[in-house]
Design a protein around this nucleic acid. Structure first.
Length: 876
RNA sequence: GGGAGAUUAGCUCAGCUGGUUUAGAGCACCUGCCUUACAAGCAGGGGGUCGGGGGUUCGAAUCCCUCAUCUCCCA
């Protein structure tokens, strides 16, 4: 049965994916081959596929498939991340819809709900990746809360604690009043916001009517003020040194202190100090031993220190207090002001700096090898510019707050046996805890005396072990997998999580295995919509990837998303790009239809086919070489573009047209065999980008033995490439284009045969390409002549002149115009060349080669101008 | 406020260890074609002086300075 005109992706995709799965091609076990390992950036377990995943996983699949074809033992480990805060937020929300409050549940009950949710929604994203064609080793699917995995997380906590790298302490942390947890610095997004600057006056103590004015963006925190601070150098406020001030509304007396920290230029030069609610104020408070008055509850409402505002939300209080300050004469004025405010990455709540007791990892020392090995190139970033960002962060690395006041995650293995700040032990089990606590306290501790820390660990405290723990590298050290697959090869991820994840994996890699976790990091860009906005669920501007796949085919979408996406660049995505991908698939499909339609008959290979084959062999090798090089440089989208042009332009538009027999004519066996061999090689090159159609046609092209699938075929080897024939063919293309141009300008149908005469002025002309020109130009003959041919249209290629005899309706004027345009161009060119050559300094100081080149340009241009001028005069 | 990067055809990007022809590609666009592989196609074509200014050099999109605009990271 004849193949349909258009390629239908639906028919091949599920078929071949199932076939690959059945054959176990994605599964990897250690063997004697060279390993090629990629670990997926684990998506949130309850997430759904978005365009960012599509880009990211397409790139990984391309790398993995190519490595497999290069004969490596390719292993792509998939999995999901428990994403503690994001998942917990979703579960809490879902429970709320059912009328259940988290606070009404015990930890165990809540976790039961969470696991149910995970069972129901977890892993949808992995199923979606299969639609994309991702060749992950699904037998190795990991989850950051798997038993072994969790064990390794806890082990690492204990180990770092024992090494003194983890400590517990009261610090100013980023508090998310909505999720009711602390966040790491990296989880806070700073945004510019229009706000107001409030000028509030404070009475100076023991005076009747002396005041000072402060400027603040947060008037509600007045109730937590512990001091007023001025710059000691500020001449305006010398009289305030050593005095006290009265806090409005609460009427507390607070000291006026001096510190260089205060910017005399900003606001009024008087700063109110609220150590409990601002990071800088906290530092000031510590320095000057100020009282710390925390006026907020955990959820952002005011507590008893908030006086009559107790129980109200912080933002409501800001409005109310503005009014009260105004009514009571404390508010001097307000001004519009733009400042940066921190928002929770997950809940988008305004972050409240809050003093609390948390666990921290001390990072400075741990970070050293991770910094060095990126800077010295042991780990390579693509593009390299991200090294700068990385270095900047690593040089200024801060301690990492790892405790989260959540339940979904790895519960911190600390056991408390008393109220004292040191009354705890860190260990794996309750039994160990009893023994340790007994020893530490010097009294007999029983189970009922022990309470495990309620908090869980930051999600990234488990993700940073990903390349190690998916291979059980910590719980079963030195096992075959970890020995074989680690270090992994390439990591493909977004620059946004360079600090969250990439940097910390590198740190963990060196700390725990003494080796890098991966050799290359490929940073993808952010997928944006046409308007340049980041694609997000809340904006609703992200197309559903699954719908795209249904519409354009997985191959089409893969190509569409990759075609204009160099590493590290944002990708403005428009679904019309997938059309290009779909069209390409269709082009390949039709090339196959053509090749498969030919009848074979025994006869001698036409001269044009002999040359065509010879040329394409060289062309294929040259471009394959380029493609390999681009892969090595991680210039994946350029490798795709090169492949696209090789297939569409060189193979379809040129090669197939050259060897194509006339309508209903047979083809000779030699040409057909060679063409099929080319087609096979091309399908292999296409396969990493478009796995489905390449597998489909691989089987259409030939009956294959069981197990002879393109996915496990060998990547084409580079053979020699004849540069001479390539250059000669380029000229031939020009000649044929000129002939087509002549036809078009003179309205001569492509079916009508025409004659071509050549006057050769170049010695190298050997006529070897004539059979191709004859066929592609649809010529009746090519004849060499030694004199100009009158009454003809002509063009030049190099210095050779080509003549096509005039038909009846040739437009001499347009012929002249054409020649004049070319002359003008050449004269302009010549002028620029001569300008250089007449410059003595150029001739004396430029390298000889360069000067000679310019001389040759000058000669060529002159020769050509002479020939064209002559031609022009012959037309007159 | 500190740091990094970018600015090349309508769009997305190459080119940037300075010199192989007065800048390349894909898409989009324009013109003509339903020429029996493909109109999801074929053939042909137009379009930028490389963000502005200054400098170094025999020579700059490519190096330096400066201004402008944008993006990202950090505080």
């Amino acid at each position: 049965m004849e193949a349909p005109k258009n390629y239908d992706p639906q028919l091949s995709e599920s078929k071949w994916y199932a076939h690959w799965m059945k054959k176990g091609y994605f599964h990897s076990e250690p063997d004697e081959r060279e390993p090629y390992t990629v670990v997926i950036p684990p998506p949130n377990v309850t997430g759904v596929l978005h365009m960012g995943h599509m880009l990211n996983n397409t790139i990984q699949d391309i790398l993995v498939r190519r490595a497999r074809m290069l004969g490596k033992n390719a292993c792509w480990v998939p999995g999901t991340d428990h994403a503690s805060i994001a998942t917990e937020a979703k579960v809490v929300q879902k429970l709320r819809q059912e009328g259940i409050k988290k606070s009404d549940l015990t930890r165990e009950e809540f976790l039961k709900h969470a696991f149910e949710w995970k069972e129901k929604h977890g892993g949808i994203i992995l199923e979606q990746l299969k639609k994309l064609g991702a060749s992950c080793d699904w037998e190795r699917t990991s989850f950051t809360m798997d038993e072994k995995y969790s064990e390794s997380v806890i082990d690492v906590f204990i180990d770092l604690y024992k090494k003194g790298k983890i400590y517990r302490g009261v610090r100013m942390v980023n508090w998310d009043p909505e999720a009711l947890t602390a966040l790491s610095d990296e989880e806070v997004l700073h945004k510019e916001v229009n706000s107001k600057l409030f000028y509030v006056r404070y009475k100076i103590a023991e005076t009747d009517d002396q005041w000072l004015t402060i400027a603040t963006t947060r008037p509600e925190t007045i109730l937590g003020d512990s001091a007023i601070c001025i710059n000691p150098e500020d001449p305006r406020f010398i009289h305030l040194h050593g005095k006290n001030a009265i806090v409005p509304l609460s009427n507390r007396t607070i000291p006026i202190i001096t510190d260089e920290y205060v910017d005399m230029e900003f606001g009024t030069g008087c700063l109110k100090v609220t150590p409990a609610h601002d990071t800088n104020d906290y530092e000031l408070g510590k320095k000057h031993q100020l009282e710390t008055i925390d006026i907020f509850n955990a959820n952002g409402t005011l507590n008893q220190f908030g006086l009559h505002y107790e129980g109200m939300d912080r933002f409501a209080v800001r409005q109310a207090i503005e009014k009260e300050l105004h009514d009571k004469g404390y508010l001097v004025k307000t001004e519009d002001h733009i400042n940066k405010i921190g928002f929770s990455e997950r809940t988008n709540a305004v972050i409240e700096p809050r003093l609390s007791l948390q666990w921290f990892v001390s990072m400075k020392e741990l970070a050293q090898p991770a910094l060095e090995n990126v800077m010295n190139g042991n780990i390579q970033f693509h593009p390299e510019k991200f090294k700068n960002t990385y270095k900047h962060w690593m040089d200024n690395i801060k301690d990492w707050c790892i405790s989260r006041q959540l339940w979904w995650g790895h519960q911190i293995p600390a056991w408390y046996f008393g109220e004292g700040s040191e009354d705890y032990v860190v260990c794996k089990t309750r039994e160990e805890a009893i023994a340790l606590a007994t020893a530490k306290s010097g009294r007999n501790i029983t189970i009922s005396d022990l309470k495990q820390d309620d908090d869980v660990l930051d999600t990234w405290f488990s993700s940073w072990l990903w390349p190690i723990s998916v291979f059980d590298g910590l719980t079963a050290p030195g096992n075959n997998d970890i020995k074989y697959y680690y270090p992994t090869n390439d990591l493909v991820t977004a620059p946004e999580i360079m600090f969250f994840w990439v940097a910390r994996m590198i740190i963990a890699g060196y700390e725990y295995l003494g080796d890098l976790p991966f050799k290359n990091v490929y940073y993808t860009g952010i997928v944006r919509d046409k308007l340049g906005r980041k694609m997000s669920k809340s904006l609703g501007n992200s197309p559903d990837p699954i719908e795209l796949i249904e519409k354009y085919g997985a191959d089409g979408v893969r190509m569409g998303i990759l075609i204009s996406s160099p590493a590290g660049n944002d990708l403005p995505f428009d679904s019309s790009q997938c059309e290009q991908g779909r069209n390409f698939a269709n082009k390949i499909w039709n090339a196959y239809r053509l090749v498969s339609s030919w009848e074979v008959q025994e006869f001698e290979q036409p001269k044009s086919s002999v040359i065509g084959v010879e040329w394409f062999k060289s062309k294929l090798n040259k471009e394959l070489n380029t493609i390999n090089d681009l892969y090595d440089k991680f210039r994946i989208s350029e490798a795709l573009m090169t492949t696209y042009k090789l297939v569409w332009d060189d193979f379809c538009a040129w090669y197939l047209e050259i060897i194509k027999p006339g309508y209903q004519q047979p083809i000779d066996p030699k040409t057909l065999a060679e063409t099929k061999a080319f087609f096979e090689a091309l399908l292999k090159i296409i396969h990493p980008f478009m796995p489905f159609i390449s597998e489909e046609l691989w089987h259409s092209l030939k009956n294959r033995e069981e197990g002879n699938d393109i996915i496990v075929s060998r990547w084409p080897e580079i053979e020699t490439c004849d540069e001479v024939i390539l250059r000669s063919f380029e000229k031939t293309e020009n000649i044929i284009t000129q002939i087509r141009n002549f036809r078009k300008q003179n309205n001569i149908a492509s079916k009508v045969k025409i004659e071509l005469f050549i006057k050769t002025n170049e010695e190298t002309y050997d006529g070897s390409m004539d059979p191709i020109i004859l066929k592609m130009g649809n010529l009746s003959q090519i004849e060499q002549i030694s004199e100009k041919l009158n009454n003809s249209s002509s063009f030049m290629e190099g210095l050779n002149e080509y003549f096509i005899p005039f038909g009846e309706h040739i437009d001499i004027e347009s012929e002249k115009k054409k020649i004049n345009e070319e002359l003008n161009h050449l004269k302009g060119f010549l002028k620029s060349v001569q300008a250089k050559l007449s410059n003595e300094k150029f001739v004396s100081s430029a390298p000889e080669q360069v000067v000679n080149m310019e001389r040759k340009k000058e000669k060529d241009a002159n020769d050509k101008i002479a020939l064209l001028s002559e031609k022009l005069s012959s037309l007159n």
